[in-house]
Amino acid sequence: MKWSKPAVLLVGALVIAGALAGLTGVRTATSQAVTLKAVAVADKPELNPDWATWVKIPSVDVQLTNQAVTYPKGGGTVPAVSLKAVHHENTLYIRASWKDQTENVPSIDMAAFTDAVALEFPGKSAVSVPSFCMGQPGSGVNIWQWKADAQAGAGSAALAKLYPNGYADSSGFPEELTKAALYQPAFGLGNPVARTDAAVQTLVAQAFGTLSAAAAQDATGAGMWRNGEWSVVFTRPFSAADGDQAEFAAGKNTNLAVAVWDGANGDRAGQKNVSQFVTLQLSGELVKAKSEDWGALWFGAILGGVLVVLGLAALGWAGVAGTAKERA
């Protein structure tokens, strides 16, 4: 192999530039290694996808794929989810939005499924970046799942709304008894699926099939469907009340993966649209939310410049060579 000095210099320069880009989080390739930047904001965010400041926060589109690794496989109807993130007084806010032509908020329908979205983070005690497929033993994941039906308070209230003249006679048992844990076992056992007062469930997992309720249900959220698009905001303080959950700190990076369920497609369980882990970067400095990502612009300008220079150089070489040929 022939080594030329200019070539070695070029490679050296590229290695240094690449390493710098890697350390500063400047992107050098599209699609993979997406970084979601959570900027610190001065005003306390509202738990509302329509909060005015969200418009000014840059968004990151994350590609989703159908889940094809384990039973039950499925999904494939939601190609991407758009993410925004901010933090304020040691509390993280993440907004996810995605296109979905149908609003699926089943109340008591037994054959209908709800639209939902979940964020997945490495657990605090994870000794390494866990598998984005529900984590692994020793490196668990923390999942916040928002469900449209839970937000709508499906259950008893929906039942009463759907059948206003319906009456359950409790078969002679006192009514308070039939509403008790014994007669609502999932609720009585503290299964967060049965809760009617929270739209978001806080969960932990260490492998497929191990998803369980976290000891503290401290993630909250609110979602809204409008014009064929769901927007959901999640929030949780940087530190959780129990140790299995994710831990955040300003100036530190962690990972984030997203899953979206399309109720109209019968999505539930593993039948969902999934992303790989993207990087979640919590900026340290308090900045006003800005509308453009100057880092990427700056890098793009440099790359463009390099291209122009190289192009000119090639034309020059070609010209020189051409002259040489004529001379010959």
Partner: peptide, 20 residues
């Protein structure tokens, strides 16, 4: 509701108030 879907005798049933 994978069990509701799977049981051919349809003796697994969904309870919408507890969502289980």
């Amino acid at each position: 509701r994978k069990c509701v879907e799977a049981c051919p005798y349809k003796k697994s049933m969904y309870r919408p108030t507890t969502r289980t």
